[in-house]
């Protein structure tokens, strides 16, 4: 064991350096959020340590983001993500339950069709879909922003995998007691599946929080702009004054960071059910 100690020390140093490389852009983002707009590049050219630590701290960038209506964009993003998670979980859990627990002819084919159609990346059909949405009068509505996030192949897959692991004796016992499938779903499977539900909820949340192409396609009314679109617009509008853009990006990043840090272990358990099961 002793001869391994220097190797372990070297590997630890490698791990620290790599983590720092990944962390630096985030530190720079935070520092740039709290420094004045004309200081943005002051410490980068030539570079000095103030690049990661503002010389004069200010909340001006956050104020200008708020004055620019960023809170409304953020509110839109939160609303869209929240509705997507709740309704999307209900839809995914229902199909996962049918595909894992209810015996019927053609089940595995149905499963393949459902997961396959949702695995085709949404971006690939977003453009023709946006044309249909405008024909249906759905452009510039919250419904248009929410709908595409509701069906998610990975969420269905994760939940079905978890449901398959629940002993069938439980549902058979409930069945003998006269419980229908709805009762078994609601009072046997859902209460047992908290970790899988959280994992699937995270998948649904991240999809919507990342959305960019779709909101660009279906929303032209600024009041409905989601936060990422609003940031891209401020980035296009200011060519050298990036303070507000930094502040908006920092806020946009911090919300999923908190959610993920709090729920990280569920994300890992949920993804560990993909890929490795034979």
């Amino acid at each position: 064991m002793n001869k391994n100690r220097p190797i372990r020390a070297i590997l630890t140093i490698v791990a620290i350096i790599v983590s720092l490389l990944f962390l630096l852009p985030i530190l720079w983002l935070l520092a740039s959020t709290f420094r004045s707009q004309n200081e943005t590049f002051a410490s980068s050219d030539p570079i000095n340590w103030s690049v990661l630590w503002p010389q004069h701290w200010t909340l001006g960038n956050i104020e200008s983001a708020i004055n620019n209506g960023f809170l409304r964009n953020l509110g839109n993003s939160i609303l869209v993500a929240a509705v997507t998670v709740i309704v999307g979980l209900a839809i995914s859990a229902m199909s996962a339950f049918a595909l894992a627990v209810i015996p019927f002819r053609g089940r595995s084919a149905t499963f393949a069709i459902i997961v396959l159609s949702f695995l085709v990346p949404f971006e690939a059909i977003a453009i023709p879909l946006s044309q249909s949405f405008s024909q249906w009068g759905l452009s510039n509505t919250m419904l248009a922003l929410i709908l595409p996030g509701l069906g998610n192949g990975l969420a269905v897959f994760t939940l079905r995998q978890f449901f398959l692991g629940v002993p069938t004796s439980l549902s058979e016992a409930a069945n003998l007691d006269g419980a229908g499938w709805a009762r078994i779903f609601w009072s046997v499977y859902l209460p047992l599946s908290r970790p899988a539900l959280i994992g699937a909820g995270l998948i649904l949340f991240l999809f919507q929080w990342q959305a960019y192409l779709w909101p660009v396609l279906v929303v032209s009314n600024q009041q409905l702009d989601l936060a990422p679109v609003a940031i891209a617009k401020s980035f296009g509008a200011f060519t050298s004054n990036y303070g507000q853009v930094f502040a908006e990006t920092a806020v946009l990043a911090i919300i999923p960071a908190i959610v993920l840090l709090a729920l990280q272990r569920y994300f890992v358990t949920s993804v560990s059910s993909t890929g490795s099961k034979e």
Binding site: V18, S19, F22, L23, P25, I26, W28, L29, W209, Q210, Y212, A227, P228, V229, I231, A232, F235, V245, F246, T249, L252, A253, P256, A257, V259, L260, L261, Q264
Partner: peptide, 18 residues
């Protein structure tokens, strides 16, 4: 956790940052 953190930043945000 640190190496995973950039995945939490929405793509539009990280594109602008970089």
């Amino acid at each position: 956790t640190i190496i995973f953190m950039p995945a939490a930043v929405p793509m539009a945000g990280s594109a602008i940052l970089w």
